[in-house]
Simulated scan of single mutants.
Amino acid sequence: MEILRLIRIVLSAFFGVRKRASHEADFANINIVALPFVAVFLAACVGGCIFGAVVLIAHATNTMQGF
């Protein structure tokens, strides 16, 4: 379950919705070495989702006739 805790920490850091007490409690109990790898992976996933949405929207507007 540590990987889920790391994912929760990284996602809350992306969106800035953590309380200071829970932030300090989580950092006392996690593996600091794995945290950058999880952060890079999640950043790539979020970026891929945004890129995919843009490609779908751009493709849909590209095939419209008369606009």
Rank of each mutant, 00 (worst) to 15 (best):
I57T: 04
I50K: 07
A53P: 00
L11A: 08
S12P: 02
A58K: 02
G66C: 05
A60V: 03
R8I: 00
I30T: 09
N29E: 12
I32A: 14
F41I: 15
I30P: 01
D26W: 15
I7E: 11
H23C: 11
V55K: 11
V46P: 00
L6T: 06
A39K: 07
A34V: 04
V55C: 04
A21M: 12
M1H: 06
A53K: 07
I9T: 06
A60E: 06
E24T: 09
I9L: 15
A43K: 08
A25R: 15
I32G: 02
A43M: 07
F27H: 11
N29S: 10
L56C: 05
R8A: 08
P36K: 04
E2Y: 01
C49N: 03
I3G: 04
I50E: 03
F51T: 11
L42P: 00
I30G: 12
I9W: 15
F14T: 12
F27E: 01
G66T: 04
R20E: 14
L4R: 02
G52M: 01
V40H: 07
G52A: 02
T61F: 09
F67S: 13
A44R: 08
I30Y: 10
S22P: 01
A39C: 05
G16D: 06
M1K: 13
P36Q: 09
M64G: 04
V17A: 14
P36S: 02
E24G: 04
I9P: 00
I50R: 07
H59I: 11
D26P: 08
P36R: 01
V10D: 06
S22C: 10
S12I: 00
A28P: 09
I50Y: 13
A58R: 04
L11G: 03
R18G: 09
L11F: 06
C49V: 02
Q65A: 10
H59D: 10
S22N: 12
L6K: 08
C45Y: 03
I3M: 13
L56I: 02
R18T: 11
C45A: 08
V10W: 14
A44F: 07
L35S: 01
V10Y: 15
G52C: 00
V38S: 04
A58C: 03
A44Y: 04
F14V: 11
N31I: 00
T61G: 03
I50T: 06
A44D: 04
S12L: 07
F51C: 05
G52N: 09
S22Q: 13
G47S: 11
G16T: 06
A53Q: 09
M1T: 13
E24D: 15
A28Q: 15
